Computed example of a mutant assay.
Amino acid sequence: MSLKEQITEDMKAAMRAKDSNRLGTIRLLTAAMKQKEVDERIELTDANVLAIIEKMIKQRKDSITQFEAGGRQDLADKEKAELDVLSAYMPAAMSTDEISAAVAEAVAETGAAGAQDMGKVMAVLKPRLAGRADMTTVSAVVKRALTAQA
């Protein structure tokens, strides 16, 4: 079952269970998926859906930070609940050791020699690690690996 089909089934289950919070979040996700399909005239793959979910998770994290800074804990809690629902669709996160191994492999594959080759390495890693690792962390590991080489 594709991720898109799984989300649709979860939406039906949330409707049956009358779980309005979960249902609302899943509806936001399906709306974003349909929007992308219509805008780009494509059928979404699991990778596309993961990219949409990643973007929505990042938005929720930013909102939580802003709401807590503004003293609006009620809104922050709502965003946290949405974040929990969205996070359930993400694959298991990679450990730091797994990220380091993937970075070392990509550096060897691209023949990167220094910090100027960071873009090449990231271009190789991004599709491989999408949804499984925070790209900010990956970027930091790549930078350390390339500066250690120089």
Rank of each mutant, 00 (worst) to 15 (best):
D97I: 02
M11K: 14
D97R: 03
D62Y: 08
L75A: 07
R60S: 01
A51S: 08
L129T: 03
A47F: 12
V38W: 08
L44P: 00
A93Q: 11
V142W: 07
L146N: 02
A140C: 09
I53G: 01
Q116T: 14
A133T: 10
K80S: 02
Q35L: 10
D39R: 11
L50C: 08
A133W: 08
A150D: 12
K61H: 11
A47H: 13
S20V: 11
K61V: 08
K120E: 08
T8S: 15
T136C: 03
M56Q: 05
R16D: 10
A17N: 01
R60L: 06
K12C: 04
A88L: 01
A47K: 15
E37C: 05
V121F: 08
P127W: 09
G70M: 01
M94C: 13
K61N: 11
A108V: 12
D10W: 12
T136Y: 00
K58E: 14
P91Q: 07
K12F: 12
G131S: 06
E79Y: 11
K120L: 13
A51L: 01
T137G: 03
D77T: 09
Q6K: 15
L83W: 00
S100R: 14
D74T: 07
V141K: 14
I64K: 10
E40N: 07
D10Y: 11
M1C: 03
Y89R: 07
G70F: 02
Q59P: 06
R132N: 06
F67S: 00
R132C: 09
L146Y: 05
A32S: 15
V141S: 05
Q149T: 03
R128Q: 05
E54A: 14
R27T: 14
T8D: 14
R132T: 15
T136A: 07
P91A: 10
A113F: 14
T137K: 12
A102I: 11
A130G: 05
D97N: 02
E43I: 05
D39W: 03
M90H: 04
T136M: 09
R72G: 06
V38F: 08
E5K: 13
T96W: 05
R22V: 06
A133P: 10
P91T: 10
F67G: 04
M94V: 11
E105M: 10
R128I: 02
M11A: 13
A14Q: 04
E105K: 14
V107A: 06
K80E: 06
D62S: 11
I57V: 07
Q35V: 09
D39F: 00
R16I: 10
A88Y: 05
Q73P: 09
K61R: 15
G70C: 01
Q66L: 08
G131A: 09
A104M: 15
T65C: 04
L75G: 03
M122Q: 05
G111E: 05
K126D: 09
A106Y: 12
E98L: 03
I64H: 06
K80Q: 02
L23G: 07
E82R: 15
M15V: 15
A69R: 04
I26Q: 00
T136V: 06
V103A: 03
R60Y: 01
A150L: 14
D84P: 02
V124Y: 07
K78I: 13
D117V: 09
G111M: 13
Q149H: 01
D74W: 11
T136W: 04
I64D: 08
A13D: 12
K78L: 04
A32F: 07
R22W: 06
G71D: 03
I57T: 02
R60M: 02
A14W: 03
D39C: 04
K58F: 13
A145G: 01
E68H: 04
T110R: 11
K34Q: 13
